[in-house]
Design a protein around this nucleic acid. Structure first.
Ligand code: ZN
Ligand code: ZN
Ligand code: ZN
Ligand code: ZN
Lengths: 168, 168
DNA sequence: CATGCAAATGTTACAATGTATCATTTATTA
DNA sequence: TAATAAATGATACATTGTAACATTTGCATG
């Protein structure tokens, strides 16, 4: 770790931090020959700016609040699919919510991720699963006659703040 | 392992196997001072008899087919909640589906479960997570400032049959 | 620049999943 | 048996997600 965006809150404030990540995302898309359109960029920036995982309809509300115009649900789901395919966003199936990848600006490879999802406030942390832990899990999966599809662990948690009874 | 219901297909056929498990479930409920009503028993037996995880509405359809009368969705969700609380049934959040616990008839304690869910055919296997693997995961969760709620891992897989292209 | 194509987005109508609320039935207990 | 609590039913609705078709936008080519 060390260069992950969620750990570096340097001078410049939140909006500049978002811009930096968006720049990385644009570079990523250029490299992959796909287009990060304005709408897709709006969605992504809202997700990057959010501490919590957001549902598709929460995203719609936030986009409307921030950019003035409501994006139809159908379009939002399509854009989320695009961002997921590009690995800029992760869908959390446990919660039916979406988060920006925590490693958009990192240069290190994207290893197997484990998502810790607070059931109270939807705060999410994306951490890496140690290689040998994951290898052990995978071995058991194969022995049971299954094969992994999306190597991604999601776990229902409660965060420290919510455990202490803090309101948000 | 060794005495788990899903590994022992002795003489007597499927329906007797289901009866045996239901008997264990009734004993469990008696011990815990709760009631395994007829409706709850119907739901549970349909789940036990199913190879696949079932959605609430699939359960409604199967109950109607088998017992003649449709159970309202509201009631089904309440009964599923009851069965979940009694640990007779597990909800798979990844798939929004339900499975009977694979260990209702086992005498050994119910350890941390990992559910392998085939995305094609919804076949599910409930296997145990090795203690030390789970301990490692939990350590990382705590270090990230979260606490586990429901120690249950769910992973999107594809089963051998579906991988080979078999239809069901 | 005009034109034509493909990608992206919008619109409408719906399907699927889940719940809040209040009414009714069933079981337990006094 | 009457009172009480637990379980189930009925209705209406909220949330999440998608299919099908229309429209707009970006881009290449003549
Ligand atoms: Zn990521
Ligand atoms: Zn929290
Ligand atoms: Zn179980
Ligand atoms: Zn399968």
């Amino acid at each position: 770790m060390g260069s992950c965006q969620h750990e570096s809150e340097l001078a410049g404030g939140v909006s500049q931090r978002i811009d930096t990540i968006i720049n990385h995302a644009e570079q990523h898309c250029k490299t992959h020959g796909v287009r990060l359109t304005d709408k897709r960029k709006q969605l992504l920036s809202v997700l990057i700016g959010s501490e919590k995982a957001l549902s598709a309809y929460e995203l719609i509300d936030l986009c409307k609040a921030e950019f003035g115009k409501a994006i139809p649900a159908m379009s939002v789901y399509r854009m989320l699919q695009f961002l997921e395919d590009e690995r800029l966003v992760h869908k959390l199936n446990l919660a039916n919510k979406y988060v920006a990848c925590a490693h958009i600006s990192c240069d290190h490879a994207h290893s197997v991720s484990q998502f810790l999802i607070c059931g109270e406030c939807s705060k999410v942390d994306e951490i890496s699963v140690p290689k040998q832990v994951f290898a052990e899990l995978e071995k058991n999966v194969e022995e049971a006659g299954f094969h992994l599809i999306t190597p991604q662990l999601e776990i229902n948690c409660i965060c420290n703040d919510c455990k202490k009874g803090n309101k948000h």
